[in-house]
Simulated scan of single mutants.
Amino acid sequence: MASLDRTPTPLPSKAHLLGWLTALTGLIAVIAVVVLAALGQGEAASAVGAVAAAFLGVGGVRITVQIRR
């Protein structure tokens, strides 16, 4: 019989690290694109934006479902 205890189990530290890494990468990419665009380096800003979008697309949201019986 399944337990009725609905106390959430804490996430492992690796799950939090992935979220922080993704957020930090996005922030750095936005800053880099703005700085490059302000300096008149439109091609470089486009390249940095494309690489950042590809990286952030791969490291997107992951959902894990644990079914206990």
Rank of each mutant, 00 (worst) to 15 (best):
R6W: 06
R62Q: 11
S13P: 03
L56V: 10
L17T: 14
A54H: 04
G42R: 06
A15M: 14
F55E: 09
E43T: 13
L36Y: 07
S46G: 11
V61P: 01
V61Q: 01
R62G: 05
W20D: 13
L27H: 02
V58G: 05
R68D: 14
P12A: 06
G49W: 02
A45E: 08
M1D: 10
L17P: 06
V33R: 01
R69I: 10
V61E: 08
L24N: 03
L18K: 06
L36H: 00
G40F: 10
T22V: 03
A2I: 14
A32T: 14
G57L: 12
K14N: 14
A37H: 02
L24R: 11
A50V: 13
G42K: 04
A15N: 14
R69G: 00
T25Y: 11
A2E: 11
L21T: 10
M1F: 09
A2Q: 12
G19S: 10
L27C: 03
L27M: 12
D5I: 13
L36G: 00
K14F: 15
I28S: 13
W20P: 01
F55G: 03
V33Y: 00
L56G: 05
A32I: 02
L56H: 05
G57W: 07
L4V: 13
A50G: 12
R69W: 06
V34C: 00
L56D: 06
V30E: 01
D5H: 05
V65M: 09
A44W: 04
L36Q: 09
P8E: 13
A37S: 12
P8M: 15
T22K: 03
A47Q: 04
A32C: 07
A38L: 03
I67E: 11
P10M: 11
A45R: 01
G26S: 04
G19L: 12
H16V: 13
R68Y: 07
V34A: 00
G60E: 06
L56K: 02
L56R: 01
W20C: 08
L39R: 03
V51I: 15
A50H: 00
A23L: 14
L18N: 03
L27T: 09
P10R: 03
R6T: 15
R6N: 14
R69L: 08
A54R: 05
V58C: 03
S3R: 15
Q41E: 06
L4D: 07
S13G: 01
I28L: 11
T64I: 12
V35K: 05
A53K: 01
V33G: 02
V34Y: 00
V58T: 06
V51S: 08
M1P: 05
G59C: 04
A47K: 12
G59R: 01
V58F: 14
S3H: 12
G49F: 10
G57P: 05
A53N: 03
R68S: 10
S3A: 09
T9A: 08
A50M: 08
V61L: 09
S13R: 09
I63R: 11
S3E: 11
L4A: 08
T22W: 06
Q66Y: 09
Q66H: 09
T7W: 07
A15Y: 14
P10F: 07
A32P: 04
